[in-house]
Nucleic acid binder design. Structure first.
Lengths: 203, 203
DNA sequence: GTCTATATGGCGATAGAC
DNA sequence: GTCTATCGCCATATAGAC
């Protein structure tokens, strides 16, 4: 029935919202039922247990956490453009899903074994990007650096602006939501500038 | 009595360990009692409630999360040396407390009001560092940039190496703990290099 | 498929003996 | 100060009517 599918989708959507907000341990099945506007028993009818419902949500979120960068990386633009494009797309993703980083990082640290299962589903090929970077190093067009560290640095700079929101807001921005939004809107440019400056080969 | 103090300290130590590992919601009073090698009722005898015990642990952790940088920033060394010294000390702190970032970030996001209470205890003066940076910009010795973004970038780069450990290990380092430790040991130098390159004023 | 009612277990907290 | 035993509640999960 269409109604069946609609309900299942409604549950997944509600679960996504509540799990991301409160985390697995802090979330109650009742919270999800309320958010979905249905009864608690229906959750178990569709997903059998809290764990299974969580898995469905988590796998989706985890996939999203790693943006589709294959097209960017495979394309024929300069490394600078690739990095700029990556930061641009990743920040957009985080703006739309501000709780995603803290959600993923938290669950993955509380339950590190889980990630090992998921990795099999998730075919990520960092070598495409790494190859791009190494080539530029050999060209001499950027300075010698470890591509893995560069990527981790970029992701860290993007993520912390969101995972650290309450801290940033309080200590740096007078606890003003408005100033925080402004800060986030500047962030793309600031990160891109920082990264591009940092990889230049001028001594 | 000395015994009293010893027990209280034992509880705090155990609570710190377990809360950081599992988070407030995922942690059970029984877990802490086990870790401390005492009875569950004793926890309530000393700290009355889970909330109060958590507050004691959290305040301590939060204070630690912001390293004492006053001396560094107030000293008479170059900005480059200041940043290098900050990264050095902060990374050392995180190496000793690898779960600290995910713990703080998680709790602060789940309960953003809490930070507003704590901020009153915590006198942080970012202006000391910011002033240092702004002066160098006016000197023309570093490029024009927003000091706030620079700091958030540095902290993000440091933190993500730890908060993202399971992900980094799995996707970048063949799930090898040994390689991860190596990666962390290189990280100080990589971040410092990246930061110092990024702020230079050469076009 | 969706609901109400309930079983079952676990957790925070307290009472009370020693 | 430290323990055992227990209360009272709340969360997951199921039974069963509609």
């Amino acid at each position: 029935m269409e109604l069946k599918i609609e309900t299942e989708e409604k549950i997944l959507q509600a679960a996504k919202t509540v799990f991301q907000q409160k985390g697995f341990d802090g979330c109650r099945m009742q919270d999800i039922a309320d958010e979905a506007g249905i009864n608690k028993a229906l959750l178990h009818y569709y997903f059998r247990s809290k764990d299974r419902l969580f898995d469905a949500v988590f796998k989706d979120a985890f996939r999203k956490f790693f943006p589709k960068v294959q097209e960017i990386m495979a394309s024929d633009i300069t490394l600078e453009k690739k990095l700029e494009s990556f930061i641009d797309k990743y920040m957009d993703l985080l703006i739309d899903n501000p709780m995603l980083p803290i959600f993923i990082l938290n669950e993955v640290n509380r339950n590190p074994e889980k990630i090992t299962e998921i990795i099999n589903l998730q075919v990520i090929n960092p070598n495409l990007l790494f190859g791009s970077i190494i080539k530029e190093i050999e060209n001499g067009s950027i300075r010698k650096l470890d591509p893995r560290h560069l990527i981790i640095s970029i992701i860290g700079m993007c993520i912390f602006a969101f995972a650290g929101k309450p801290i940033i807001k309080n200590f740096l921005l007078n606890n003003s939501e408005e100033e925080y939004l402004l800060f986030i809107s500047q962030r793309k440019k600031e990160i891109t500038e920082l990264v591009l400056k940092s990889i230049t080969n001028i001594k």
